[in-house]
């Protein structure tokens, strides 16, 4: 049975009605209209649906929307400030880190959570974390380059 659920996404409040079995990923796309979060495998393997929940990257397909009530959710729609891209988005363009773009939102949110950490990861940690998501255009090298560059850019701001 549908029940009222309140989600905080990119500092906006969304009052939705959904069944408990509604995943956070489906709620974002279908109920909040935020289709920037993509769904690939729907069972936690590909990472396309990665969003940030209370500062940590999480698979939005492996969490029910009802579990995300009261938590601060960030999706790809919240990265840019108006017309100004987030340094990581700019770095993805500069380093040609996206080809078809399907995996990009997940990579952006995963990497954003890493490079915004108070203790940014060292290179080994970065590679370990980036191995969490799949890109089937095989663009990993450029993705790693973009994240490294954005990490530096973010700390110089």
């Amino acid at each position: 049975m549908k029940q009222p659920i309140t989600l905080q996404v990119n500092q906006n409040t969304y009052d939705i009605e959904a069944e408990p079995r509604r995943t956070l990923a489906d709620a974002l796309r279908e109920d909040c209209g935020l289709t920037g979060t993509h769904l690939g495998c729907e069972h936690g393997v590909c990472g396309a649906c990665t969003v940030i929940v209370d500062g940590d990257p999480m698979r939005a397909c492996l969490m029910f929307a009802v579990q995300a009530e009261g938590r601060a959710i960030r999706t790809v729609e919240g990265l840019a400030a108006g017309a100004t891209l987030h340094p990581l988005q700019q770095a993805f363009i500069d380093h040609h880190a996206l080809q078809c773009g399907f995996c990009t939102a997940g990579f952006l949110m995963l990497a954003t959570s890493l490079i915004e950490r108070a203790d940014p990861p060292d290179d080994q940690e970065l590679l370990d974390a980036l191995s969490s998501n799949l890109c089937r255009c095989t663009g990993y090298k450029n993705i790693v380059n973009a994240v490294r560059a954005a990490s530096v850019a973010l700390r110089q701001r």
């Binding site: 936690g44 990472g47 990665t50 940590d56 990257p57 999480m58 698979r59 492996l62 969490m63 995963l110 370990d128 974390a129 191995s131 969490s132």
Partner: peptide, 12 residues
Amino acid sequence: AAHVAHYPIRMR
């Protein structure tokens, strides 16, 4: 812990 699934999975 480094071998347990992937980073976002380990967060949850």
